[in-house]
Each structure stands twice: as structure tokens, then as C-alpha cells.
């Protein structure tokens, strides 16, 4: 029995070292005064300082944040409506087409999605830039938002909403006053998820955007192609920290809800 426990502990440790090792090394290197990965030249924040003087990088970060905020908003609203249709409308006509189209981007190669979106923009004669970037990201992240909100809606007690309607509330009012507060944490999480995915995307952005709107991953990618650089390590570490904070926030919201539900 002890041997089995030891083996399981070993598997856990090995798994976590594999998952976190490269990230931890990357973050450590961003504080390395030396340019070489194999030489520790002392603790330094000079790469971060250099980063904040890199106008192009800052501009790209601005564009990425703005595109993520906007596209995630559209994706969450669309995702909420789509999730409602999937969770509440039963077996309506064309449901398979609708559900299939919603879930497909989850497994579709990004190069295909990106190319397809670009062709739509060209076909409609839309100049590629910030707008097309937002539209592309909103389409691509919508499926993730839908899946998340759909799961929350399925777990929601429908009789509460029905009770509200029996008491004279319109369906819209009943949904807004009863169900929406119940699924609010999932809606917030869906927004954060869409935001993070948009912020991170390189492939679809490269197809969808124009010369005026280069995103942060595109800028990082063009630098990475030139090799490992401490400045890229620094921006990577900042992004990792940002996502860790967003994840922590999301976990707190979900836990707060679980505890609140338990008390009530």
C-alpha cells in the first residue's frame, strides 16, 4: 500500500514539475542581469525598465487590451443568448446546425478559422484593422463563453423562474431577476475567459488585423523568432502574472458564490 502511495506522490511531483518548471525558469530568467540563460549575472529589473521604454511594445499591449475588453463583451452577450437557446429551447429546428457551429471552433485549427474570417472581411470590403480584430476575436471566443454559461444554466433550478412567472413576472423579468443573478459568476468567468483567450491569440489576430493594429502576441512572436531575449522574458512574466491574477479573481468569485449558496 505504501509503495502505491509513494508512486502516486511521485507522479504528482513529476507532473507538476513538468508543468511549472519551464514557466518558473522563464520568470526567473527575466530577473537575470545576464543575457545568457546558463549564467546567473545577479538580480536585476533592467529588462522590465527597458520594456517600459519600448514604445512599440506598449502600443501593442494597449491594442491587445482594448481588443480583448471589447471582443470579450460581445462574445459574452452572444454566448449568453446562445447558451439560453441551447439550454432552454429543447429540440428546435436546426438545433444540430446551431449547436454544431457553436462547438466547432473549440476544435477547429486556428489557421483555418483565421483564414476564413479574413476571407469574409475581404469579401465584404472591410479594411483590416482594429475593428476586424475585435470581430474575429468575438467570433472565436464566443464558443468558449457559450460552453461556460450553458453549464451554469443547466445546473440552474428552473422552477424558481417558473414560480416568478406564476406570480406574474414576464419571462424576461423572471430571467433578469431570478436566473441572471444565479448565473452571474459564470457570466463574469466567461467574460474573463474570453478576455484571456483574445489577449493570448496570435494566429487569428495575424490573419484578421491590419498594419495599424499589431497585437502584443504578434509583437512578441516577431521578437521570439529572432531568439530568446531577456526583454521577451520580462513581458512574458508580466503576462503570466496578469493571467494568474485573473484566474485567482475568477476562483474567488466562484468560491464566494459556492459559499454564499451554502449559507443561504
Amino acid at each position: 500500500m505504501n509503495a502505491a502511495r509513494l508512486a502516486r506522490l511521485g507522479a504528482l511531483v513529476a507532473g507538476f514539475v513538468f508543468l511549472y518548471g519551464p514557466i518558473v525558469i522563464l520568470a526567473t530568467m527575466s530577473f537575470n542581469a545576464s543575457r545568457l540563460v546558463t549564467v546567473w549575472g545577479g538580480f536585476s529589473t533592467k529588462w522590465y525598465a527597458a520594456l517600459f521604454h519600448d514604445e512599440q511594445m506598449l502600443r501593442a499591449a494597449q491594442i491587445s487590451l482594448a481588443a480583448a475588453a471589447l471582443s470579450a463583451l460581445i462574445a459574452t452577450i452572444n454566448g449568453l443568448l446562445a447558451a439560453l437557446a441551447l439550454a432552454r429551447f429543447g429540440a428546435f429546428r436546426t438545433r444540430a446546425l446551431f449547436a454544431g457551429s457553436i462547438y466547432a471552433p473549440l476544435v477547429m485549427p486556428e489557421v483555418v478559422l483565421g483564414l476564413g474570417l479574413l476571407l469574409v472581411f475581404v469579401a465584404f470590403g472591410v479594411e483590416r484593422g482594429f475593428l476586424t480584430l475585435v470581430l474575429a476575436h468575438a467570433s472565436f471566443t464566443m464558443c468558449f463563453a457559450t460552453v461556460m454559461i450553458h453549464a451554469a444554466l443547466k445546473g440552474c433550478d428552473r422552477t424558481l423562474e417558473e414560480a416568478a412567472m406564476d406570480l406574474g413576472a414576464t419571462p424576461v423579468r423572471a430571467f433578469a431577476l431570478v436566473t441572471l443573478p444565479l448565473i452571474a459568476p459564470s457570466v463574469v468567468s466567461a467574460y474573463l475567459l474570453a478576455f484571456i483567450i483574445s489577449l493570448d491569440d496570435l494566429v487569428i489576430a495575424s490573419f484578421a488585423t491590419g498594419p495599424g493594429a499589431t497585437t502584443l502576441p504578434m509583437r512578441i512572436y516577431s521578437q521570439v523568432r529572432l531568439g530568446v531575449s531577456p526583454e521577451v522574458n520580462a513581458i512574458s512574466t508580466l503576462l503570466l502574472g496578469f493571467v494568474a491574477a485573473a484566474l485567482g479573481l475568477s476562483a474567488l468569485i466562484t468560491r464566494g458564490r459556492a459559499e454564499g449558496g451554502g449559507a443561504g
Partner: peptide, 18 residues
């Protein structure tokens, strides 16, 4: 175990270069 998935894909791939 799943948390790293939410961090940047590009950066996780980049980390392996070093």
C-alpha cells in the same frame, strides 16, 4: 494542473526554446 493552460500559449512554447 489546468491553470497553466490559461496562461499564454505562445509564452509556454517560447519557454521551451531556452
Amino acid at each position: 494542473a489546468v491553470a497553466p493552460f490559461w496562461t499564454s500559449f505562445l509564452i509556454r512554447v517560447y519557454a521551451w526554446i531556452a
